[in-house]
Simulated assay, not measured.
Amino acid sequence: MADAAFAKLLFMEAKRVQDPDGSDEILVSRGDGVTFEQLRMREGDVFEFDERFVPFVNQAPIDIVLHEVNEATDQVKFIGGAKIIPSELGLGERTQAIGALSLSLYELTYKVL
């Protein structure tokens, strides 16, 4: 079996938001802390990633994490994460829930290439 090279992030859907104004300010990052998207989402919103490829390094899993930013206080709160593994290569589109134990809930859809 060939080694997986990338995870291609396709889209993320807001299933539940926690902010009282009805929208969350979200940071989308790799597990190492590199933020590559900052967006505002309301329940039901779908964000499509624009050709976002995240490389596998030595076939180690890729962690994608979400944080919610409180704009009034600039506090950042961890929502949850997804672990993308190289063995998902060839399985097509995959979806993982992020934040099941949080007040917010998102679904990340990706493909391993």
Rank of each mutant, 00 (worst) to 15 (best):
M1W: 04
A2G: 07
A4L: 11
F6G: 02
F6Y: 14
F6S: 01
A7F: 01
A7Y: 05
K8S: 11
K8E: 15
E13C: 01
A14Y: 01
A14I: 02
K15Y: 03
K15F: 01
R16F: 01
V17F: 09
Q18W: 02
Q18K: 12
Q18F: 05
D19W: 04
P20L: 03
D24C: 04
E25M: 10
I26L: 15
L27W: 10
L27I: 04
S29G: 13
R30V: 07
R30Y: 04
G31S: 04
G31L: 06
D32A: 05
G33R: 01
G33W: 07
G33C: 08
V34K: 13
F36Y: 04
E37N: 08
E37Q: 14
Q38G: 10
Q38Y: 07
Q38V: 13
L39K: 07
L39Q: 07
M41W: 04
M41Q: 10
E43R: 13
G44Q: 05
D45T: 11
D45M: 07
F47I: 01
E48G: 00
E48I: 09
D50Q: 10
R52Q: 15
F53S: 08
V54K: 03
P55S: 03
F56G: 09
F56W: 09
F56S: 10
Q59H: 06
A60M: 13
A60V: 02
I62Q: 02
D63M: 10
D63A: 11
D63S: 11
L66S: 08
L66G: 09
V69H: 06
N70Y: 05
N70M: 05
N70R: 09
A72K: 13
A72C: 00
T73D: 09
T73P: 11
T73C: 10
D74G: 00
Q75L: 10
Q75A: 14
I79R: 03
G80I: 06
G80T: 03
A82D: 08
A82Y: 08
I84T: 05
I85M: 11
E88Q: 15
E88G: 10
E88P: 00
L89P: 06
L91Q: 11
G92N: 07
E93Y: 03
R94V: 15
R94E: 08
T95F: 05
A97G: 06
I98E: 04
G99Y: 03
A100R: 12
A100G: 13
L101C: 00
L105H: 12
Y106P: 08
E107F: 03
E107W: 00
L108S: 09
K111G: 04
K111F: 02
V112P: 11
L113C: 00
